[in-house]
């Protein structure tokens, strides 16, 4: 880790004033679980670290206009224990492995964390480019994307992102110049070049809260992970179903850890319309969800896992 100066603002205004126009200017410290690792690896060498944990307005889960406003500083542990949050979000939080990470990590941090791609983490760049070509498709890609056409092959590390997309949630991004709200679905982007990022967050912005609209949808999240803990999911799915009786009138199905962004499985959403959720329809929806998957040399198994995750999430959602 390289030296940095440290600021401990008490207000959002102070905090945004301490950020810079470039990524290297400042790092925003909340839970720190990702930031410190990036800094120890010298992947991120901010000149200043701005601790936002003392900004009270970023705390808490509040009911608001029928929906929820989840402060960026709400810890994963708090979310996992929330009685207010939709089930898929609670489940996604519960899956986040290790009590320590849940105590430290924040919902804002979950959305802003950098990819875990080992080429990136070992210093070969976000897109792992060598001689104008990504190292990933011909390399060690067992944990990489099965959707997308490159050049980004990492998977979005966010655990909450897929559930938030199914819920139609938005994030609020605040800079010294003002604030904007962005749907979570468009917060994540697949970077096209090494100078781009995997979210639309700008270096002078802080993600301050997540706005989750009111929902009566049946929701669930299912994660496939080899180890019980301290392990990343191999594939995950969050679903949100609008039901009329036992028939699905509208479905949101979003996959996690299979693409550089949470991956909206439109075909699965279509396939579920008008159906009741059974083993058979869930299975078909799973199949539909992975249509168009383009697995790499080592990760065809993730197509299977994504399919299973969708099926199990759907069955979970309709289970009492």
């Amino acid at each position: 880790m390289q030296a940095f100066e440290y600021a401990n603002p008490n207000t959002l205004q102070e905090a945004t004033g301490l950020l810079g126009a470039q990524w290297g200017d400042a790092g925003v410290l909340a839970g720190g679980t990702d930031l410190l690792s990036l800094m120890k690896e010298n992947l991120h060498t901010p000149k200043r670290v701005v601790n936002i944990k003392n900004i009270k307005e970023l705390e808490g889960i509040h009911r608001s206009g029928g929906g929820l406003r989840i402060g960026a500083l709400v810890t994963i542990d708090e979310l996992a224990k929330s009685h207010e949050a939709p089930r898929s979000l609670v489940e996604a939080a519960e899956y986040i492995p290790s009590p320590q990470i849940r105590h430290m990590g924040t919902v804002g941090g979950d959305l802003c964390q950098r990819p875990r791609c080992w080429y990136y983490r070992q210093g070969m760049g976000l897109l792992a480019m060598k001689d104008g070509k990504s190292l990933v498709p011909g390399g060690e890609n067992r944990y990489h994307a099965i959707f997308g056409e490159g050049p980004a092959y990492f998977v979005s590390a966010s655990s909450l992102g897929p559930a938030l997309v199914t819920l139609g949630a938005r994030v609020k991004l605040v800079s010294a110049k003002g604030s904007r709200e962005v749907p979570v679905a468009s917060f994540f982007v697949a970077p096209a070049d090494e100078n781009s990022r995997e979210t639309v967050l700008r270096p002078d912005e802080i993600l301050t809260e997540i706005i989750v609209p009111n929902t009566t949808m049946k929701t669930a999240t299912y994660e496939v992970r080899q180890k019980e803990a301290l392990d990343w999911p191999l594939a995950a799915a969050s679903v949100a179903l609008t039901m009329s009786g036992n028939k699905v009138t509208a479905a949101k199905v979003v996959l996690g850890h299979v693409a550089p962004t949470p991956h909206v499985a439109t075909a699965a959403e279509e396939a579920l319309k008008g159906q009741s959720v059974t083993e058979a329809t869930a299975e078909s929806a799973g199949k539909a969800a992975v249509e168009g998957a383009r697995p790499l040399s080592q990760n065809a198994y993730k197509v299977t896992l994504a399919k299973v995750a969708v099926k199990r999430a759907l069955l979970g959602a309709v289970k009492a």
Binding site: A7, E14, D25
Partner: peptide
Amino acid sequence: GLLPKEAAAAPGAAVVGP
């Protein structure tokens, strides 16, 4: 300080280090 204090250093946001 290594960084400019663009927001005119709101009170309480003292910067320390590096």
